[in-house]
Amino acid sequence: MPTSAMHVARTGLEAQDARMRVIANNLANVGTTGFKRDRASFETLAYQDVRVAGTQSSSETKYAIGLNLGTGVKVQGTARIETQGALNTTSNALDLALDGNGYFQVQMPGGQIAYTRAGNFARSPEGQLITAQGYPVQPGITIPENATEITVGLDGTVSATIAGETEPSQLGQLTLASFANPAGLQAAGDNFLLETAASGAAQVGVAGQEGRGSIRQGMLEGSNVNVVEELVDMIECQRAYEVNSKMISAVDEMLRNANQTL
């Protein structure tokens, strides 16, 4: 039985609802450190071939065109747009921004490694470099209690001046993870991403090498959400939603009239 126009319009409503949720999430995170905007992608559902082009129209002729009826649309997936966000100066020694590709590594409860672009780090009571949630940054960096003038180099080298010493001491080096397909990382909330089969295995190395970005101390990467662009998309989505809603109303009225007439 051919798919009704009512069904096609309803799939359009569902698709636009999903798109609106993506836009709303982007706008909600316009001020989130290191946030990357999402984009919804769509694909057509299966077509119903009422008449296939090239079939016989008579004993001597063939149809030049076919009759194919679409059955609607569905959400194909959401893709994260990995463009660089603006780097904002904070002058906080433990605020770190990535200028280029790569992710900081964080050890989650249970030992799993997560990845993030949000470098608003802090120091635990034990001196560990941690995230706002208290998760240790990897490789582990311990800052002595009497350390002053903490510096982080472009390559992730962490140094500090220790009381009683004249020369800065190297405390360790932060490394970055990169992926063959960063869009395949799974969002886990709290600005964290998790490795998946689609992202490929993490390639860990020194910042500034092998295509990885540099680490900028005293800065944070802002969201890459463009508010004007999102609002334009929202208006377009709203119009498409209205069109599909009116189509449902029109089809419903047509069916009502047909039932009354018959």
Rank of each mutant, 00 (worst) to 15 (best):
T83L: 11
S58W: 05
S245V: 09
A201K: 06
L262W: 08
A118Q: 05
V204T: 12
S59N: 13
L171S: 11
T3L: 02
L98N: 06
Q48N: 08
N88D: 11
A187V: 04
N88W: 02
D190K: 07
S249T: 15
L194V: 05
V243L: 15
V75R: 00
M6N: 13
V251Q: 12
P109R: 09
S4L: 10
I23Y: 00
G211C: 10
M108A: 07
Q128H: 10
A5M: 14
S124R: 07
Q107K: 11
T116V: 02
E236Y: 04
T83P: 00
R212G: 04
Y115K: 12
V52H: 13
M108S: 03
I150V: 13
N224I: 07
R117H: 08
Q16F: 00
G54E: 09
Q133V: 03
E126P: 03
T196F: 13
L67K: 13
G189H: 07
P136R: 12
F42A: 01
E195N: 01
M234R: 00
G12F: 01
L255V: 15
Q105I: 07
N259D: 14
I215W: 04
T166Y: 06
M6L: 15
A15Q: 03
M219V: 07
N68T: 13
L193C: 10
R216F: 04
K74L: 06
A79S: 11
M234D: 02
R123W: 08
T55G: 02
G140R: 08
G66W: 06
K74Q: 12
Q56Y: 15
V243E: 04
K246C: 07
S199V: 10
G111A: 03
T148G: 11
E14I: 06
L262R: 15
E82F: 03
N244W: 08
A188L: 12
N25W: 00
N25I: 03
A86L: 11
T175I: 08
S223C: 01
Q186D: 12
I248G: 02
A197Y: 09
L69K: 14
R256H: 15
I248R: 11
A147F: 06
V8W: 05
A183V: 09
A53W: 03
A187L: 10
Q186K: 14
I162E: 01
E165A: 14
T166W: 05
Q128L: 13
R117G: 13
G205E: 04
I130D: 01
Q260T: 15
Q48S: 09
D17H: 13
A177N: 06
G66C: 10
M234H: 00
A177M: 03
T44W: 08
R39S: 08
N92H: 15
Q138I: 01
Q203F: 12
M234K: 03
Q16A: 03
G119P: 02
V73E: 00
T11Y: 05
